[in-house]
């Protein structure tokens, strides 16, 4: 066991060379790499921290925006609800008005139809009654209805109150245009004579009489002198009939509804 001095010094030199080489190729490089990595990690942590703060800020901002949006949405919804309510009210009002208008129109149409029906009924009933009565009178008493009408009319002239008589007389004198007698039938000559005589007797003077046939008069006769009128027809009876009939129709409609 001895020490070889050459090897001893060679080993010292070897060791010093090794220290130098490892310092150059190992320690400095590895430590530098580790420091770089540490710095990188630190910077990344710092970056992450910054990003986290920014994210928190963004989250807060977003939350605020969401809140504002929610409030705005609620406000809009409320406005919309109010608007819809208003619109609904308007539409209902309009619908009600439309319904009223339709109902009024319908009512008018109904009334028109009813009036037209009653008018028609009165016309037909008048004609029917007139022909029936004429036949009955002819068959039972050999009497002419037109003659009877004229006679009733003459009786009316005879029984007229003085006041009315004076008015007609005055208007006959003032007008001078004569008297117009309208009837639904042609007045025969004998009846014309009777009428003239009666008028002459009760009104005085010799009136000029003009005879006319008017379709609107149902089974009747009228005397017109300067805006004054004396008439008889079965219109009065028919009006009563129409009133009764209309009343019955209304009653029936009310019961059905």
């Amino acid at each position: 066991m001895h020490i070889d001095w050459f090897v001893f010094f060679a080993q010292i030199v070897n060791f010093l060379i090794l220290v130098f080489l490892l310092k150059k190729f190992l320690y400095s490089r590895i430590i530098k790499a580790m420091e770089n990595r540490e710095n990188l990690i630190v910077s990344r942590f710092a970056e992450a921290e910054t990003m986290k703060k920014e994210a928190a800020k963004s989250a807060a901002l977003l939350e605020e925006k969401n809140k504002a949006l929610a409030e705005k949405q609620e406000e809009l919804v409320n406005q919309m609800v109010l608007s819809v309510e208003h619109q609904k009210k308007d539409l209902l009002e309009k619908a009600r008005r439309d319904v009223d208008t339709v109902r009024e129109r319908w009512q008018e149409t109904m009334n028109r139809e009813k009036d037209s029906f009653l008018q028609d009924l009165r016309q037909r009933a008048g004609i029917q009654i007139y022909s029936t009565v004429r036949r009955i009178l002819k068959d039972m008493a050999s009497a002419d209805i037109e003659e009877q009408i004229v006679r009733v009319f003459i009786r009316q002239i005879e029984n007229m109150d003085e006041k009315k008589r004076a008015i007609i007389k005055e208007s006959m004198v003032k007008g001078g245009s004569g008297i117009i007698i309208q009837s639904s039938f042609p007045v025969s000559d004998p009846l014309r004579i009777i009428i003239r005589d009666t008028l002459k007797q009760h009104m005085g003077g010799t009136p000029e009489i003009q005879y006319e046939i008017a379709d609107e008069i149902i089974s009747g006769i009228e005397l017109r002198a300067c805006g004054h009128k004396l008439a008889w027809s079965i219109n009065d009876y028919l009006e009563t009939l129409e009133e009764d009939f209309a009343h019955a129709l209304l009653e029936e409609a009310r019961v059905k509804s």
């Binding site: 070897n14 090794l18 190729f25």
Partner: peptide, 28 residues
């Protein structure tokens, strides 16, 4: 033999270090 094996150990250490540290990654 002492010197020869010393050089062998030195070579492994230095060459190994150089091989690994010539391309060091500073990333994770």
């Amino acid at each position: 033999a002492t010197l020869v094996y010393t050089w062998l150990v030195m070579f492994i250490l230095v060459f190994g270090s150089w091989l690994v540290t010539r391309r060091l990654s500073p990333t994770i």
